[in-house]
Design a binder for these strands. Structure first.
Lengths: 166, 166
DNA sequence: TCCGCAAGGAAAACTGTTTTCAGTTTTCGA
DNA sequence: TCGAAAACTGAAAACAGTTTTCCTTGCGGA
């Protein structure tokens, strides 16, 4: 049993809840997916291994994982709640590419320090913070430059439409 | 006519739309309210001056204001889209008190600089960024301390319940 | 004055999420 | 080992914020 599973089990027990196969499976799939999953995403993955599990259970289990400190809710502002690993994972921030949806994680100690300083200045006690940088990633910038060149001296007819991030 | 109204008018015209009393009223009320309004908030204010205006129009007009660059959408992650003034207003970040919902605006040039540096490092072209610090404001911290004292040596019976931010 | 495009409001549709409901499973003490 | 109590589950309904649809209204130019 992994450390994470123990943490979950401990949390479950502390709340007087029960360990079930559904919860085990959802946790397992969550753990082996190192991404920013939405509840929907996870639901799809889970369903692939057990068609009988319902959305509701996934929602509920994600809540439990969050409570247990294994997952962390991240809302990027598109109305969808994403979840990322939280156990023994260092805090980090996100850059989100508005073209392809790619998420780049980064961390800066200086940034953290300044944030804390700003909070202190306002006598504000920080419990959490979120930094989100939205823009265009290196990859997409290159693609765009290509497209521009193409436009200036067109060769083929099909111009790539930029995929909208979801 | 204020500068903002001109900006709006210009935008309206560029899109081949029309100036209407409803849009004027909504813009007017938005401009005189220096806060982070949700669509619902604005709708309530507008309705006070003209009962006949519908939610839909408020939503649509806020979209227009955003397009025109007068307003800016801010999502704090509670599922509600807030709008703040954007025209000739310097960019700033937010601290949000989870007890009373108060919003403190702040700005730090260093912070901006580091963010830009981080982006540059990843060859990421920034179009927007958002920093949200969640915690407890000075006011509420004081209130909590009071409550704790009260608890240690109770005098009255009524203990204040902390209002949940909305 | 007539035409046509855009506007506006009500209501329906939609989306992600939460709650309700009713049947099922698990736990645990006797 | 039984049986009651508590928790679990999935489906469907409920919800809240937002967007779309539909149809009437009305302005503005020919």
């Amino acid at each position: 049993m992994t450390e994470e599973q123990e943490v979950f089990l401990k949390h479950i027990q502390k709340k007087g809840l029960k360990r079930t196969t559904q919860r085990d499976l959802i946790l397992d799939i969550f753990l082996r997916t190192e991404e920013h999953l939405s509840s929907e995403d996870l639901y799809r993955l889970v369903k692939r291994e057990d068609r009988s599990i319902g959305q509701t259970t996934v929602y509920r289990t994600l809540k439990l994982l969050t409570e247990a400190g294994l997952a962390r809710e991240v809302r990027f502002g598109d109305g969808i709640t994403h979840y990322e690993h939280n156990y023994k994972h260092q805090h980090h921030d996100h850059m989100i590419c508005s073209k392809c949806g790619r998420i780049i994680e980064f961390f800066s100690a200086e940034l953290e320090a300044i944030q804390d300083a700003m909070a202190a200045k306002h006598r504000f006690q920080v419990t959490q913070h979120l930094l989100r940088i939205i823009g265009v990633c290196a990859e997409c910038r290159r693609a765009m430059k290509e497209a521009d060149k193409e436009k200036a001296a067109p060769r083929g007819s099909a111009r790539q439409t930029t995929a909208r991030a979801r």
